[in-house]
């Protein structure tokens, strides 16, 4: 006797189509990213396009924009006496600040990942500064950097070094801001810590069996496996550092001798103190292009040093 399998097929019943894995993944992606997309479309795309338009106008915020073509962009490169100064100050800050921040945060995370007593307290202690409001931090650093009463110069004094007048010296003001930025490495440190805890222990065990030294394990296992996270931190810190503003706005106002006149501070002055929002918008777009260029450069270079254990996608 033959049993026909046709009986299991119901003619005319709706055929349930199952989504492929990749399609489902895409849907989930859009679902989870939708709050940002909606926020971007509702709150950001308008101002972004408006600022692009304003960058080609003479506009003082409190009046109507007047189209002036590319005059604002020409002014930036040819007439603005502090454009290049502010750009140089910002490059200096990014050039020294980002590598120091990346290295310092990474080393701190490695230390705080070790089995030491009270490590949670240490982690909290190092993380707290990154959540302290910028204004409070700036005021605190004004006191710390005080040449006579500040802790930093007092500490240097213990070693017989006479500390500089950090914020009043054109030579020392930018290093002071870089030093200050290290205070906020807690955010990056937490991300590194999460990454470090995700490295499979078996890899270290295998290396131990092979007789690898601590340095070898660090350079051959830890750093390669952490490279995507280092890459992420480098990119975000480059973007953030190019926009350094609050601390200089509060602590020095750009002085002395414009040595801390960072690009965003320069832009802010034009927008609000000098009533030139059109020009400030042009400055903002120039900065955007610079940041995009640097970010692309880092992305391009990443294939040489970033290791993805699941392969590059």
């Amino acid at each position: 006797m033959t049993v026909t399998p046709a009986a299991t097929t119901q003619v005319g019943s709706p055929k349930r189509r199952r989504l492929s894995m990749s399609r489902r993944e895409a849907l989930f992606f859009y679902f989870f990213i939708s709050p940002w997309i909606i926020g971007f479309l509702v709150f950001q795309i308008g101002p972004i396009l408006a600022s692009l338009y304003f960058s080609f106008t003479s506009y003082a915020i409190v009046d109507s924009p007047q189209w002036i073509g590319t005059r604002n962009y020409l002014r930036a490169f040819t007439q603005d006496r502090l454009f290049w100064t502010s750009l140089w100050n910002t490059f200096y800050y990014v050039g020294f600040g980002v590598p120091l921040n990346v290295v310092f945060a990474f080393l701190l995370a490695v230390l705080l990942n070790a089995e030491i007593r009270g490590r949670i307290s240490y982690r909290v202690a190092y993380y707290i500064p990154s959540i302290i409001p910028g204004v409070a931090g700036a005021v605190l650093w004004l006191i710390l950097l005080n040449p006579r009463l500040g802790l930093i110069n007092m500490a240097l004094g213990v070693f017989g070094i006479q500390g500089p007048n950090w914020l009043a010296s054109p030579q020392w003001s930018k290093p002071a801001f870089i030093l200050m930025s290290l205070w906020g490495v807690g955010g990056a440190m937490i991300i590194y810590l999460a990454g470090l805890q995700g490295i499979p222990v078996e890899l270290y065990e295998a290396a131990d069996i092979d007789g690898a030294s601590t340095a070898a394990k660090f350079t051959r296992i830890t750093i390669p496996l952490m490279s995507p996270i280092i890459f992420y931190n480098v990119v975000t810190q480059i973007i953030g550092s190019f926009q350094v503003f609050g601390s200089a706005f509060i602590m020095t106002g750009g002085g002395p001798l414009n040595s801390t006149r960072f690009y965003m501070l320069h832009l802010y002055d034009y927008a609000f103190a000098y009533f030139r929002m059109g020009y400030a918008s042009a400055l903002a777009w120039v900065l955007l292009l610079i940041i995009v260029a640097f970010t692309l450069l880092v992305f391009r270079g990443s294939s040489a040093w970033v290791f993805y254990s699941g392969g590059r996608q």
Partner: peptide, 14 residues
């Protein structure tokens, strides 16, 4: 002057 250093703007004990 800078070695003597002072924050002229603030009006606290410093």
């Amino acid at each position: 002057y800078q070695a003597w250093g002072a924050i002229q703007g603030s009006l606290d004990i410093s």
